[in-house]
Simulated scan of single mutants.
Amino acid sequence: MFGCEWDDETEEVNGIRQDGYDGEDFIVFDLKTETWIAPKQQAVITKHKWDNNKAQIAQYKHYLTQICPEWLKKYLNYGRSSLLRTETHSQFTHIFSHSPSSPVSCHATGFYPDRAMMFWRKDGEELHEDVDLGEILPNHDGSFQMSADLDLSSVPAEDWRRYDCVFQLSGMEDDIFTKLDKNPVYIYIIAAVVVLALVLLAVIGVLVYRKKKGERLKQKDCLISFSVFRF
């Protein structure tokens, strides 16, 4: 195992280079003294041999104090937007269902970091039964999303108002509470409306196109007739 450390305030650099065997340290390179340390008696012979290899020691020292810190700073700069990212609240929390017979899903997205919790409550008490908690998944912009499904197939519609979804994000003072409406939004209805709207727009576009095309043809016929009459 080898690696390096860099203090961005003091600019101090430190490196490690060690070998192990069967889960235990075998021999370790001391960067300050530029010698090898043998934690095990079996490594003493190797220590003396490697201590006399000055070219190898110089190579390790150059790598641990020069090359490795340069790569460390480069990767730190590459990941700065993620590593130094501050906490953000959930941008969108809502409740929906795929169909009237499907479980009701509480969904939160756009939050950071991924240390978050979500659960369903009934009359203020957390529920454990009939709840399917999904995994925290990444979004394309580096934020995260999660959802929790609740099976209400045996619950009368008039009792749905007793349920709510709670979203908790690490570092956020207040929790987000989303009350379950008696009529949650159904995805398939929204999809049908969107498709219908697109079809309607397409039909209108075709009619407008045909109308304009017909007007151009009439104008062209008028010009031809006028030209024939003129000659």
Rank of each mutant, 00 (worst) to 15 (best):
M1F: 08
F2Y: 09
F2D: 04
G3N: 08
C4E: 02
E5K: 06
T10V: 06
E11L: 06
V13E: 10
N14E: 11
I16Y: 13
I16W: 15
R17Y: 14
D19F: 15
G20Y: 12
G23M: 10
G23F: 14
E24P: 07
V28R: 11
L31W: 03
K32N: 12
A38W: 03
A38S: 13
P39V: 06
P39L: 08
Q41G: 15
I45D: 07
D51N: 14
K61W: 00
Y63K: 04
Y63P: 00
Y63F: 11
T65D: 09
Q66F: 11
I67P: 03
I67L: 12
Y75F: 14
N77P: 01
E87T: 14
S97V: 00
H98Q: 09
P100D: 04
P103E: 10
V104K: 01
T109F: 08
D114V: 00
D114W: 03
R115M: 12
P138E: 10
S143Y: 06
Q145R: 04
D149Y: 04
D149R: 04
S154I: 07
P156H: 12
F167L: 08
E173C: 05
I176Q: 13
I176K: 14
V193N: 11
A197I: 09
V199I: 12
L201G: 08
L201A: 10
I204S: 10
G205P: 00
V206S: 09
V206W: 09
K212D: 05
E215C: 03
E215L: 09
K220N: 03
S225E: 08
